[in-house]
Amino acid sequence: MTLLETAAANLLSPAILAFALGLLAGLARSDLSVPEAMGKAMAIYLMFAIGLKGGVAVSESEPGLTMVLAVLLGLALGFGLPLLAFQLLRRQARLDVVSAAAVAAHYGSISVVTFVTAEQFAASQGLAYEGYLVAVMALMETPAIVVGLWLASRFGAEAGVPAKRLGGELLREIFLNGSVVLLVGAFVIGLLVGRSGAEPVAPLFDGLFKGVLCLFLLDMGLLAAARLRGARLLTWRVVAFGLYMPPLAAAIGLAGAAAIGLSQGGALLVAVLAASASYIAVPAAMRLALPKANPGLYVPLSLAVTFPFNVAIGIPLYATLAAWLYGGAA
């Protein structure tokens, strides 16, 4: 399959079309909206479902060296990508130190919904992946926050409120934020109950998954449009970063995944984890820790530039790269 064919298969999936519908409706200022509580409920559903699925998959596999290496790779990406992003944001996007540190933290962390969308894409292409990557995803949520705060205090004299003044609150925000607890918790539940134990809840968590993802992406489209309309701080340099950083990070992730011996589907998902940017956990932590960094910069960049790029173009692009790297078909 060529890149064009892979991209078309992705773009014509119901989930991506639902995202496009939300985006267009939002940009056209339609009064279409998804109730806030429903959006949050769907996010909980998707995170629980993907966590459970990963746990069940791991319960059926033997732990091995590749699993340990995948965890280390995830941590290396989580700690390393913000350092790269920070340099690019300072030099190319010309952001001040605090803003660059805050944005870098977003690009070192991950987006669960991008992962879920990629997982569905991988399934549609017949690509299997290692279930423990869900746990790797949860591990990758937080290191970038720590690195972002370190960058701000190391390189910025006016780094806002130092993390130490926020004490336990910030630490709790970083390590016990809802998405991490939910992903890890559901993963452990799946691991404990196994395939047969998860069978009774499968109609909810398997059967409805694709439909809920559609509705959730519709909401994400609406949110992205709203963020795009209010994004006055996005210069072309910053937008360019939001578009070239994901493929760059994905290439690094792919190379790492291939080096440690992950499957082609696994490599695609690691690439997506590397490429995606957080818009839930990291913004909340950055608001507490770096108040001088404007959320009007990093939320639209992550949610309205990088997220749409990844789900529409990035995923098939990384899949094609993975296929090329593994010498197979996308």
Binding site: E36, M220, Y279, I280, P283, A284, R287, G296, V299
Partner: peptide, 8 residues
């Protein structure tokens, strides 16, 4: 209003 991205 707070949505999925709570920072704003």
């Amino acid at each position: 209003r707070d949505d999925i991205a709570p920072a704003l």
